[in-house]
C-alpha cells in the first residue's frame, strides 16, 4: 500500500510526457519577461532603496549620507503635505468612491440600457488626465460652465477653484474619473451571483437592503478586496491630472496640492529650475511604498474571506 502510494506520488511528480515537456518550455518562455522585468523594475527599485541613503543629483556619483534624507522628510512640510494628501486620496476619496460605485452598481443592475450608462460613466477613465484637467478647469473656473449655469438662475458666481478649495476640486475629480472603472469591476463580481439567491430571498420577503447586506456584499467580497488593493496602488500614481490642473506654464502646483508622486517629481526634475535631489526623492518614494505595502496587507487581512466557489 505504502509503496503503491509512493509510486503514485512519484508518477505524479514526473507527470505525463506532455506535462514534462510543457514544464521544460516554461523557463525559456518566462525568461525574457523575467529578465526585462528585473532590469527595468527590480534593479532600479533596489537602486532607489540604496539611493535614498545617499546625496545624489542623478548624474554625479551618489555620496552616502545615512538616514539624513529620512530625517529631512520628518521636518519637510512639503513632504507632510504630499503624504497626507495621498492619504486623503486613498481613504477620503476611496470611501466616497466605493460607496458611490456600489450605489451606481445597484442602480444599474436592475436598469434597462445599463451597458450604455456603464460605458458613459467609464469614459473619463480612458481619457488622458491632461485633457480631463483642462475640462475640469473649463467647468469650474470663475468664467467656467458651472458659474455660467448658475448665472442663468441668477446665482453666483462662486470661486470654485479658490486656493483653499482647489485640492478638494482635485479629490472630486479623481472620484469622477475612477467611478466608472470600479463600477465595472464590482458589476463583474456581482453578475456572477446566481439570480436564484435573489429570487429565493424575495420570496422570503426581504427588502433591498437586506438582499444587499446578506447576498450581494458577502458574495462579492473578494472582488471588493481586490478593487480596494487596485485603488490603493492607483492613488500613489495619481500625478498628471494634478500637474495639468494646478501647475501652470511649467511651474509646479503649490506644495499644499502635492501628492507623493508630485513630491518625487518636485524634488527631481519638476518646475522651471529643477532641484535634482534624487536621494531625498527616493527616500520619499520608499516611505510611500512602505505605507502602501502596509495598507495593502491590512486590506487583504480585513477583506480576507473564503473565496466564493460556484
Amino acid at each position: 500500500m505504502t509503496s503503491a502510494t509512493l509510486g503514485v506520488r512519484r508518477g505524479r511528480a514526473k507527470g505525463s510526457p506532455l506535462a514534462r515537456r510543457r514544464r521544460r518550455v516554461f523557463g525559456p518562455f518566462l525568461a525574457p519577461a523575467l529578465i526585462l522585468y528585473t532590469i527595468l523594475f527590480m534593479l532600479p527599485t533596489a537602486y532607489s532603496f540604496y539611493a535614498s541613503f545617499t546625496s545624489w543629483d542623478g548624474f554625479s556619483n551618489p555620496r552616502w549620507k545615512g538616514t539624513l534624507n529620512y530625517d529631512h522628510l520628518t521636518h519637510d512640510p512639503a513632504f507632510k503635505d504630499a503624504f497626507f494628501n495621498t492619504l486623503k486620496l486613498l481613504f477620503g476619496c476611496g470611501i466616497f468612491l466605493f460607496v458611490l460605485s456600489f450605489a451606481f452598481m445597484l442602480l444599474l443592475r436592475e436598469m434597462k440600457g445599463r451597458r450604455f450608462i456603464q460605458g458613459f460613466i467609464f469614459l473619463p477613465h480612458i481619457v488622458s488626465g491632461v485633457a480631463l484637467a483642462a475640462f475640469w478647469d473649463f467647468l469650474l473656473n470663475h468664467d467656467g460652465m458651472l458659474n455660467k449655469g448658475l448665472h442663468s438662475f441668477g446665482l453666483g458666481p462662486v470661486d470654485w477653484l479658490k486656493p483653499q478649495w482647489q485640492f478638494n476640486a482635485i479629490l472630486i475629480a479623481i472620484v469622477w474619473i475612477n467611478t466608472g472603472y470600479y463600477v465595472t469591476i464590482l458589476m463583474a463580481g456581482v453578475d456572477r451571483i446566481p439570480p436564484y439567491y435573489y429570487e429565493e430571498a424575495k420570496l422570503a420577503g426581504t427588502n433591498s437592503w437586506q438582499r444587499f447586506r446578506h447576498i450581494t456584499l458577502p458574495m462579492s467580497w473578494d472582488v471588493v478586496g481586490t478593487a480596494a488593493v487596485l485603488w490603493t496602488i492607483g492613488t500613489v500614481k495619481i500625478f498628471e491630472f494634478i500637474l495639468a490642473f494646478s501647475g501652470s506654464q511649467g511651474n509646479l502646483p503649490t506644495t499644499n496640492q502635492w501628492t507623493s508622486a508630485m513630491y518625487v517629481y518636485g524634488e527631481t526634475i519638476g518646475g522651471t529650475s529643477p532641484i535634482y535631489d534624487f536621494g531625498r526623492a527616493c527616500a520619499g518614494a520608499v516611505v510611500t511604498l512602505v505605507a502602501v505595502v502596509v495598507v495593502v496587507v491590512v486590506l487583504r487581512r480585513v477583506t480576507s474571506r473564503d473565496r466564493l466557489e460556484l
Partner: peptide, 10 residues
C-alpha cells in the same frame, strides 16, 4: 508601486 519608485533609479 515600485514602478513609480523606479523613476528614481538609474
Amino acid at each position: 508601486s515600485a514602478a513609480s519608485l523606479s523613476a528614481c533609479g538609474s
